[in-house]
């Protein structure tokens, strides 16, 4: 009787571990359109209404806990914003003169460099779930293919770039954040035009790395990083040009390294996403 119980217990463990390993191996080797991915999208379509309902019902609870955290953060943010306001005032004076020149130049070359996201058919969506792991990789939103959302479309919020759509079902989609380890965004420093690729520092949602910047390129702390958009017909970017990504916080310039390592703090607060926009017709980006 005892032997039978032990054998059954071990058999169940082995069976479950083997099932997990088979799923892991099969899923990892599959392309995004394959059966396991389809099952996952189907499941997402089924559970997303439940998740959406539960998310709405529990919003007051989240807000209550969020209020405590926000109050603690508010003082620190106020001090930081006061400093930013002072420097922004100085910049605004300098920018006013530059803006006049810019308008004149735009008229001359008939070039509209505005981002104009309102012309990219933005679909506003609410974040309904968040991956509980520490890798800050995905969130799900309550808009899907029925609203025109498709895989590879860029996602932004009021602060800047958030990520891309990596899976979409009827009424929900998965957004892979720019802090996911698979993410890479072609970007440039707005002030100097120096281009690189923004990658995450996995585990730290407040630090992105602008990679492949040559040592000779001049980059200063406080400069802004925006998406580069389409630069090559062969390797088109998924993102339209000019979407704010973040601000340079630190430049590592080691003597032995070929490239500089530029640290960028993302504008979007990826821990506190609530409302986002999916750009369903991103102009100047690769068509998803």
């Amino acid at each position: 009787m005892y032997d039978k119980t032990v054998r059954r217990r071990r058999a169940v463990l082995v069976l479950l571990v083997v099932c997990s390993l088979i799923l892991l191996t099969a899923y990892f080797g599959e392309s995004p359109g394959s059966p396991l991915h389809s099952v996952q999208r189907g499941f997402l379509g089924v559970v997303s209404p439940v998740q959406d309902g539960a998310s709405r019902a529990l919003k007051p609870v989240r807000d209550l806990f969020g209020w405590f955290g926000d109050t603690l953060d508010a003082k620190k943010q106020r001090d930081e914003l006061q400093k930013e306001l002072q420097s922004a005032r100085k910049e605004a004076i300098a920018n006013a003169a530059a803006a006049r020149d810019n308008v004149a130049l735009q008229k001359l070359v008939k070039l509209d460099t505005q981002i104009g996201t309102d012309q990219m058919n933005p679909v506003t969506a609410r974040v309904i779930t968040r991956s509980p792991t520490l890798w800050y990789s995905t969130v799900s939103i309550n808009k899907g293919t029925s609203s025109g959302v498709k895989v590879d479309q860029p996602v932004i919020n009021g602060d800047g770039l958030v990520g891309t759509i990596t899976a979409a079902s009827g009424n929900s989609s998965i957004v892979t954040l720019i802090t996911d380890h698979t993410s890479g965004v072609s970007a440039l420093v707005n002030e100097s035009g120096v281009a690189g690729v923004v990658q995450p520092a996995v585990g730290n949602p407040n630090d992105l790395l602008l990679q492949y910047i040559r040592r000779g390129d001049q980059i200063a702390v406080g400069q802004n990083v925006v998406t580069a958009g389409s630069k090559s017909a062969r390797y088109e970017s998924l993102f339209p040009p000019g979407i704010p990504v973040g601000r340079v916080t630190k430049v590592d310039n080691q003597e032995l390294d070929v490239y500089q390592r530029v640290h960028v703090k993302p504008f979007a607060q990826l821990r506190k996403l609530d409302i986002v926009q999916v750009l369903t017709a991103p102009q100047g980006a690769a068509t998803p």
């Binding site: 479950l16 997990s20 390993l21 892991l24 779930t129």
Partner: peptide, 20 residues
Amino acid sequence: GLFLDLALVQTLGLQSLIYT
């Protein structure tokens, strides 16, 4: 684990292995 992997569109089998 399987429910989390499916609902969050993560690599299937990852959480289920660990939680098993």
